[in-house]
Protein backbone atom coordinates (compact mmCIF):
# COMPACT_ATOMS: atom_id res chain seq x y z
CA UNK A 1 0.00 0.00 0.00
CA UNK A 2 2.74 2.41 0.89
CA UNK A 3 4.13 2.41 -2.58
CA UNK A 4 0.78 3.51 -3.90
CA UNK A 5 -0.34 7.04 -4.01
CA UNK A 6 -3.90 6.93 -2.78
CA UNK A 7 -6.30 9.79 -2.96
CA UNK A 8 -9.61 9.92 -1.18
CA UNK A 9 -12.30 12.12 -2.66
CA UNK A 10 -15.41 12.62 -0.61
CA UNK A 11 -18.75 13.50 -2.16
CA UNK A 12 -21.96 14.38 -0.50
CA UNK A 13 -24.29 13.06 -3.15
CA UNK A 14 -24.52 10.52 -5.91
CA UNK A 15 -24.62 12.87 -8.87
CA UNK A 16 -21.27 14.58 -8.21
CA UNK A 17 -19.74 11.20 -7.53
CA UNK A 18 -21.04 9.94 -10.86
CA UNK A 19 -19.58 12.98 -12.58
CA UNK A 20 -16.30 12.41 -10.84
CA UNK A 21 -16.24 8.84 -12.05
CA UNK A 22 -16.75 10.07 -15.61
CA UNK A 23 -14.07 12.69 -15.14
CA UNK A 24 -11.60 10.12 -13.90
CA UNK A 25 -12.33 7.95 -16.83
CA UNK A 26 -11.65 10.96 -19.02
CA UNK A 27 -8.33 11.38 -17.29
CA UNK A 28 -7.44 7.86 -18.18
CA UNK A 29 -7.82 6.36 -14.76
CA UNK A 30 -9.00 2.79 -15.02
CA UNK A 31 -12.11 1.66 -13.26
CA UNK A 32 -10.00 -0.88 -11.45
CA UNK A 33 -7.94 1.89 -9.93
CA UNK A 34 -11.02 3.46 -8.36
CA UNK A 35 -12.83 2.07 -5.35
CA UNK A 36 -16.16 3.50 -4.36
CA UNK A 37 -16.88 3.49 -0.64
CA UNK A 38 -20.30 4.43 0.62
CA UNK A 39 -22.55 4.26 3.65
CA UNK A 40 -25.53 3.06 1.68
CA UNK A 41 -25.43 0.55 -1.08
CA UNK A 42 -24.70 2.49 -4.27
CA UNK A 43 -25.16 0.27 -7.25
CA UNK A 44 -22.58 0.25 -10.01
CA UNK A 45 -25.23 1.41 -12.42
CA UNK A 46 -25.79 4.61 -10.47
CA UNK A 47 -22.20 5.63 -11.00
CA UNK A 48 -21.99 4.11 -14.45
CA UNK A 49 -19.35 1.64 -13.39
CA UNK A 50 -18.78 -1.96 -14.32
CA UNK A 51 -20.55 -4.72 -12.53
CA UNK A 52 -18.67 -6.01 -9.52
CA UNK A 53 -17.54 -9.56 -9.54
CA UNK A 54 -18.80 -11.71 -6.67
CA UNK A 55 -18.23 -15.34 -5.75
CA UNK A 56 -21.05 -15.51 -3.25
CA UNK A 57 -23.39 -17.37 -5.59
CA UNK A 58 -20.69 -19.91 -6.31
CA UNK A 59 -20.13 -20.45 -2.64
CA UNK A 60 -23.85 -20.90 -2.28
CA UNK A 61 -24.03 -23.46 -4.98
CA UNK A 62 -21.01 -25.29 -3.63
CA UNK A 63 -22.56 -25.28 -0.20
CA UNK A 64 -25.80 -26.63 -1.56
CA UNK A 65 -23.98 -29.50 -3.20
CA UNK A 66 -22.00 -30.29 -0.07
CA UNK A 67 -25.18 -30.04 1.98
CA UNK A 68 -27.02 -32.35 -0.34
CA UNK A 69 -24.15 -34.81 -0.15
CA UNK A 70 -24.04 -34.73 3.62
CA UNK A 71 -27.80 -35.14 3.66
CA UNK A 72 -27.36 -38.18 1.45
CA UNK A 73 -24.80 -39.50 3.85
CA UNK A 74 -27.06 -39.06 6.84
CA UNK A 75 -30.15 -40.35 5.14
CA UNK A 76 -28.75 -43.22 3.11
CA UNK A 77 -25.38 -44.22 4.53
CA UNK A 78 -25.78 -44.02 8.29
CA UNK A 79 -28.67 -46.50 8.56
CA UNK A 80 -26.53 -49.11 6.91
CA UNK A 81 -23.75 -48.78 9.44
CA UNK A 82 -25.95 -50.29 12.15
CA UNK A 83 -29.09 -51.59 10.55
CA UNK A 84 -32.08 -51.33 12.82
CA UNK A 85 -35.63 -51.92 11.72
CA UNK A 86 -38.25 -49.70 13.27
CA UNK A 87 -41.98 -49.89 12.98
CA UNK A 88 -41.98 -52.05 9.91
CA UNK A 89 -40.52 -49.21 7.88
CA UNK A 90 -37.75 -49.82 5.35
CA UNK A 91 -34.23 -49.28 6.54
CA UNK A 92 -33.94 -46.19 4.36
CA UNK A 93 -37.37 -44.69 4.04
CA UNK A 94 -37.86 -42.32 1.12
CA UNK A 95 -40.16 -39.57 2.43
CA UNK A 96 -38.24 -38.86 5.63
CA UNK A 97 -35.02 -38.85 3.65
CA UNK A 98 -36.35 -35.99 1.55
CA UNK A 99 -36.77 -33.94 4.68
CA UNK A 100 -33.21 -34.67 5.73
CA UNK A 101 -31.89 -33.84 2.27
CA UNK A 102 -33.78 -30.57 2.18
CA UNK A 103 -32.68 -29.40 5.59
CA UNK A 104 -29.05 -30.34 5.12
CA UNK A 105 -28.95 -28.72 1.69
CA UNK A 106 -30.39 -25.48 2.99
CA UNK A 107 -28.23 -25.46 6.08
CA UNK A 108 -24.92 -25.88 4.34
CA UNK A 109 -25.97 -23.63 1.48
CA UNK A 110 -26.78 -20.76 3.80
CA UNK A 111 -23.68 -21.29 5.89
CA UNK A 112 -21.63 -21.20 2.70
CA UNK A 113 -23.35 -18.05 1.52
CA UNK A 114 -22.56 -16.44 4.82
CA UNK A 115 -18.98 -17.61 4.70
CA UNK A 116 -18.88 -16.54 1.05
CA UNK A 117 -19.49 -12.98 2.10
CA UNK A 118 -16.69 -13.30 4.61
CA UNK A 119 -14.27 -14.80 2.14
CA UNK A 120 -15.12 -12.46 -0.68
CA UNK A 121 -14.87 -9.42 1.54
CA UNK A 122 -11.91 -10.85 3.46
CA UNK A 123 -13.65 -10.57 6.80
CA UNK A 124 -12.63 -10.14 9.46
CA UNK A 125 -9.82 -7.78 8.71
CA UNK A 126 -8.62 -5.38 11.34
CA UNK A 127 -5.60 -4.06 9.46
CA UNK A 128 -5.53 -0.31 8.91
CA UNK A 129 -7.50 0.80 5.87
CA UNK A 130 -8.16 3.97 4.00
CA UNK A 131 -11.41 5.19 5.40
CA UNK A 132 -13.10 8.18 6.95
CA UNK A 133 -16.00 7.92 9.37
CA UNK A 134 -18.00 10.45 7.35
CA UNK A 135 -18.72 7.67 4.91
CA UNK A 136 -21.14 6.06 7.28
CA UNK A 137 -22.84 9.43 7.52
CA UNK A 138 -23.88 8.97 3.92
CA UNK A 139 -20.88 10.37 2.10
CA UNK A 140 -19.56 8.69 -1.00
CA UNK A 141 -15.84 8.32 -1.25
CA UNK A 142 -13.76 7.57 -4.28
CA UNK A 143 -10.52 5.95 -3.35
CA UNK A 144 -8.18 6.12 -6.28
CA UNK A 145 -4.80 4.83 -7.02
CA UNK A 146 -3.36 7.94 -8.47
CA UNK A 147 -0.25 7.92 -10.65
CA UNK A 148 2.18 10.24 -8.86
CA UNK A 149 2.31 12.79 -11.60
CA UNK A 150 -1.44 13.21 -11.89
CA UNK A 151 -2.25 14.08 -8.34
CA UNK A 152 -2.86 17.75 -8.93
CA UNK A 153 -4.96 17.12 -12.04
CA UNK A 154 -7.10 14.64 -10.33
CA UNK A 155 -7.56 16.75 -7.24
CA UNK A 156 -8.71 19.54 -9.42
CA UNK A 157 -11.06 17.37 -11.41
CA UNK A 158 -12.57 15.98 -8.26
CA UNK A 159 -13.10 19.38 -6.74
CA UNK A 160 -14.70 20.50 -9.94
CA UNK A 161 -16.99 17.52 -9.94
CA UNK A 162 -18.21 18.60 -6.51
CA UNK A 163 -16.00 16.80 -4.04
CA UNK A 164 -16.21 18.07 -0.50
CA UNK A 165 -12.61 17.26 0.00
CA UNK A 166 -9.80 15.54 -1.74
CA UNK A 167 -6.88 14.39 0.26
CA UNK A 168 -4.12 11.86 0.52
CA UNK A 169 -5.60 8.71 1.92
CA UNK A 170 -3.95 7.46 5.03
CA UNK A 171 -4.49 3.91 6.15
CA UNK A 172 -5.82 4.08 9.64
CA UNK A 173 -7.15 1.78 12.24
CA UNK A 174 -10.89 1.74 11.84
Amino acid sequence: MTDKNLLLAIFEDIDPAAHAVDALRGLGIHDEQVTVISGTPITEAMLGRKHQWSNVTRFSLGGAIIGFASGCFLAFATPNMYPIIVGGQPLVPVPPSIVVLFEMTMLVMLISTFLGVFLDSRYPSYTPKEYVPEISDGRIALLLDCPGDMEATITKAMTEAGAESVKRAEAQVI
Binding site: I37, S38, I42, T113, F114, V117, S121, Y123, Y126
Partner: peptide, 24 residues
Protein backbone atom coordinates in the same frame (compact mmCIF):
# COMPACT_ATOMS: atom_id res chain seq x y z
CA UNK B 1 -14.99 -6.86 11.03
CA UNK B 2 -13.43 -4.04 9.09
CA UNK B 3 -16.41 -3.15 6.95
CA UNK B 4 -15.89 0.02 4.98
CA UNK B 5 -18.67 -0.05 2.45
CA UNK B 6 -16.78 -0.62 -0.75
CA UNK B 7 -18.73 -1.47 -3.84
CA UNK B 8 -17.55 -5.05 -3.62
CA UNK B 9 -18.63 -5.41 -0.02
CA UNK B 10 -22.06 -4.06 -0.81
CA UNK B 11 -22.35 -6.35 -3.79
CA UNK B 12 -21.46 -9.48 -1.79
CA UNK B 13 -23.83 -8.40 0.89
CA UNK B 14 -26.66 -7.72 -1.50
CA UNK B 15 -26.28 -11.01 -3.28
CA UNK B 16 -26.06 -12.89 0.00
CA UNK B 17 -29.12 -11.14 1.36
CA UNK B 18 -31.03 -11.98 -1.76
CA UNK B 19 -30.07 -15.63 -1.48
CA UNK B 20 -30.94 -15.61 2.19
CA UNK B 21 -34.27 -13.92 1.65
CA UNK B 22 -35.32 -16.49 -0.88
CA UNK B 23 -33.79 -19.54 0.81
CA UNK B 24 -34.81 -18.84 4.35
Amino acid sequence: MGFRGTEAEWTHLRIALNIFAFAI
